[in-house]
Amino acid sequence: MISRRNIRVKVMQTLYTIDTLEQEVKPGEPVKLLQKHFDESRSLLIYMIEFLNQVLSYAETDAHHRASKHLPTAQDLNVNTKIAGNELLWRIKEDTSFTAARDSEKLVHRIDKDLVRRIYVQLTESAEYKAYIASPERKKDEERAIVHFVWEQLILPNEAFLGHIEELYMNWDDDGEMAIQLFQMYLAKPGTFDFRTLISADKWSFAKGLLQAVLEKAEHLETFIHPRLQNWDAERIAVLDMILMKMGVAEFLYFDTIPPKVTINEYIDLAKEYSTAQSGQFVNGILDNIHKELVQTGKLQKTDFRKA
């Protein structure tokens, strides 16, 4: 579910955190920091699902509030709660993996109730909602369509929601796109995710292995980079650029299932997105030269970094 690009970002963030720490990192701490980054991604996804859950379920809350008025009107006593019984919504509510993860995160206490109410009111005023509740039947396509309408048209583009989630989750800028993709996958098949292991065993092995390779072989990786810096002072190169280049060289040397061209392209993109305006071209030049020399000298013989 989580792509290798997302994994590289998490490893990069972990290495940057370690580089900026004043004290020496204890054994085992780097992997714990990496796990924390993945936990933050997991929490973000769970929160998005719960927010949708709260909006769709608000029909019952609204009906209760209105019926509890001192002098309720006939309209107050006849609020349509069809959407609260939406079939897709109930598949989410009955997903024990999701509910257990949500409860462990204590996310209910972080929900902006007023924002939920405002989005629900906006929903009730929409033509899509009025058409949905006009039919007493529950058709599968219509049940899904109204849920997707709420998410895609009322929540995700909502500036108040985006401001709210950015305030709660500092990783939104890095993880937002991935979380949205995972969210859409989840809506397609609620109940199929194991929220305890959002990252598969093989991808976790890649993430942990890449992190440990860069840390344990840092000096060796730098011997490939420093000779190509020419007029550049290694101490003045952007920290992220050096981290990305070491990650790239580590992939050249120790990860035999990843084509070198894929590695180069991935780190060019990451350098452009996370470092300076010139970083993409700079990282491209260094990694491309290292790759060519490894090929020409027959040294592109990938091996386990622990045995190297």
Rank of each mutant, 00 (worst) to 15 (best):
L107C: 07
I180Y: 11
Q230E: 11
K113Q: 10
G298Q: 09
H64L: 13
P27I: 06
L44N: 12
P30F: 04
V55Y: 00
D112K: 12
F149S: 03
P136E: 07
E222L: 15
I146M: 13
R228Q: 03
K272Q: 10
E94I: 03
E219L: 13
N6T: 15
L33I: 08
A100V: 04
Q54W: 05
A277Q: 02
K299Y: 01
R66V: 00
S200T: 04
Y47S: 02
Y274T: 02
T14C: 14
M1C: 09
L154F: 09
V25K: 05
T276W: 03
R66N: 08
D256G: 14
G28Y: 02
V262L: 11
F224S: 07
N86V: 04
K36I: 06
L34S: 00
L198P: 00
D19E: 15
W172T: 13
A67M: 08
V25G: 01
P27L: 08
S43M: 10
D103F: 03
G285S: 12
I199W: 04
S104C: 10
I290M: 11
D174K: 15
F38I: 08
S200H: 10
H70S: 14
F51D: 01
K299T: 00
Y47Q: 07
W90M: 11
Q230H: 14
I133L: 06
Y254I: 03
R110T: 04
R228Y: 12
L240W: 00
D19M: 12
A74I: 11
Y16K: 11
E235M: 11
A101F: 05
A277K: 15
I243K: 10
I49E: 00
E142N: 09
L77W: 07
E219I: 12
V262A: 14
H37K: 13
A179S: 15
D39R: 08
I165C: 10
A74P: 01
L253Y: 04
T14G: 04
T73P: 04
I7L: 04
L244K: 02
D19H: 13
D175F: 07
I49G: 02
D76H: 14
W204D: 08
L198N: 01
K113G: 15
H226Y: 15
W172V: 12
E40H: 05
N86D: 03
A134L: 13
E266H: 05
F51N: 06
F282I: 03
L52W: 07
V147S: 03
Y132S: 00
Q296P: 00
R91M: 06
L253G: 02
K246W: 07
Q75D: 08
K189S: 07
E235G: 12
L210W: 07
I7C: 01
L162Q: 15
R5Q: 07
K292S: 03
W90D: 05
V121T: 12
E60V: 14
N53Q: 14
E216F: 01
P227Y: 09
E216S: 11
L244N: 10
D76F: 10
R144V: 11
R228I: 06
E177K: 13
E273H: 11
G28F: 06
G280M: 04
